[in-house]
Design a protein around this nucleic acid. Structure first.
Length: 459
RNA sequence: GUGGGUGUAGCUCAGUAGGUUAGAGCGUCAGAUUGUGGUUCUGAAGGUCGUGGGUUCGAGACCCAUCAUCCACCCCA
């Protein structure tokens, strides 16, 4: 017991049932992505650290898993470096690779590297794990899957709208009620500009993002701690009190931001998106939320966040527009916008709500009971026949007691059990038992296939 | 990185003010039922009480350390 093997903190194994449910989520998301014309790509688990560092802010850098160089990894490290224990400097010398932190930055790297092969606008999706050296807690893992859809090489706000449609489709398919919150980085910049502290943009956004959680007074205190003078905080306050419909809020904020060109542009963008959205009726409510500031610091336009309405969970999806992410890799002037679905959090929400479809529990369709060597040999070609028409079938490998084989079928959630003993071999009629109803009948192979296929359709 | 909770059987937990051989339910295995599972009945296996130290005549329980895990903050999917 004490010597039982373990896996690293924040990492998880997945059982067959969990995999079935995870695949249900992945399949749903992938099929929606495909339906909107997105194409899949994959990138390696590891990127050069130089591609990753500095893209996620200071916090992000700390959360990167770094991979030790191969071979004599201390080769470049001087005694002085080791003595001084300057972790950052040392890390840069002994590690040049890291595990990816998200899918967007590797994608930007991919686009720059393959720019000559890509037809723009490029719509890609990517479903892969990412790693963060965070301290695990509810809904937070050190290895988790992101399902990203991005459009790169177009400034059109139709892309933002498309991502909202995709969000609506995915969560409708999964049966989760969600709301989309939308904001625009330009509006936030405009606010910082208007109150006279454009340099404090990040501090301001991080603080007001917490409004819901910690309340107005605490937000003001945090702003003050971050060095924002009182007069600026007073100017900011009305913005935190906005109310009414999306249009009303936009009208109010417009008055405040009149003098900021950037801010006005942000308002225009949001308005355009809402106008497009009016053309199509979707189930998911989309609301302007000026306190929405989450998101990586590479966002420049729209910021999107999706929250589950019936479950206690942080955001289950998030995204936004980044105008110059490829610029960092040497390809300026290419705008992108994307959204990331957090598969693991979606799993937790579905689990909490008990909304996984029953089909995710289903096992093999047919199990053939093994009565002995002769009977098994007789069954083998029949089982292959079933498999060839797409029916999942298996033969119990050992000549165990019936009771044991039936119990196995039961716990594996097998739908049908076929009994082929001496009598069946003689008559050619197999005994089929439906495990749910307990009903049994004798049929030949052709009729068995027809019966199974008919049953499959009715499910 | 900061703060808090919890570690007893495969799982969920009980274990009363420190006192003999540490319990339950579920699960597992075997049997009742040698061609019938999911219900029932009977029986069995399974624990160095996370680990190391300390207090005590005596520690699963109290103290310290350590590890693991969960939750919250930070940040985020």
């Amino acid at each position: 017991m004490a010597q039982a093997p373990t896996i690293p903190k924040g990492m998880r194994d997945f059982s067959p049932l969990e995999m079935s449910r995870r695949n249900y989520i992945f399949d749903t998301i992938r099929s929606v992505f495909q339906r909107y014309g997105y194409q899949p790509i994959e990138t390696p688990a590891m990127e050069n650290l130089s591609s990753l560092m500095g893209k996620y802010g200071e916090e992000g850098d700390k959360l990167l898993f770094k991979v030790l160089n191969s071979g004599d990894f201390l080769g470049q490290a001087t005694g002085e470096m080791l003595q001084s224990r300057n972790i950052r400097q040392l890390a840069s010398v002994i590690s040049e690779k890291g595990l990816r932190y998200d899918l967007t930055v590797p994608f930007a790297r991919y686009v720059v590297q393959h720019r000559n092969e890509i037809t723009f606008p490029f719509k890609r999706y990517q479903v892969q794990p990412v790693w963060r050296a965070d301290r695990p807690q509810k809904g937070r893992y050190r290895e988790f899957y992101q399902c990203d859809a991005d459009v790169i090489g177009s400034d059109s706000l139709l892309s933002e709208v498309e991502l909202i449609f995709i969000t609506d489709d995915i969560f409708n398919s999964l049966g989760i009620n969600v709301e989309v919150k939308i904001n625009n980085r330009k509006i936030l910049s405009g606010i910082a500009e208007v109150i006279g502290h454009p340099d404090k943009l990040i501090d301001i956004t991080v603080a007001i993002d917490k409004l819901d959680k910690i309340g107005l007074e605490n937000v003001k205190r945090e702003l003050s701690e971050k060095g924002l003078p009182d007069d600026a905080i007073i100017k900011l306050e009305p913005i935190l009190h906005l109310s009414g419909t999306n249009a009303e809020q936009l009208a109010q904020i417009e008055k405040v931001l009149g003098s900021s060109e950037t801010g006005m542009k942000g308002i225009a963008e949001i308005r355009a998106i809402f106008t497009y959205l009016e053309a199509v009726k979707i189930k998911t409510p989309v609301s302007l939320d000026l306190t929405l500031a989450r998101g990586l610091n590479y966002y420049t336009g729209a910021i999107l966040e999706v929250k589950a309405l019936d479950a206690e969970m942080g955001s289950i999806s998030g995204g936004g527009r980044y105008d110059d992410l490829t610029g960092i890799f040497g390809l300026p002037g290419v705008s992108g916008v994307g959204i990331s679905f957090g598969a693991d959090r979606i799993y937790d929400v579905l689990n909490e709500l008990g909304r996984f479809p029953l089909s995710t529990e289903a096992g093999t369709q047919v199990l053939f009971v093994n009565f002995g060597e002769k009977e098994a040999t007789f069954c083998l070609p029949l089982i292959q026949q079933l498999r060839s028409v797409g029916i999942s079938a298996e033969l119990y490998p050992d000549t165990a007691k019936m009771k044991k084989q039936m119990a196995y079928a039961d716990s594996r959630k097998v739908t049908f059990v076929v009994l082929t003993g001496a009598e069946e071999m003689l008559t050619g009629k197999l005994t089929v038992k439906h495990m749910l109803s307990g009903e049994q009948q004798k049929v030949d192979v052709k009729a068995l296939i027809a019966y199974l296929q008919k049953h499959e359709e009715s499910v």
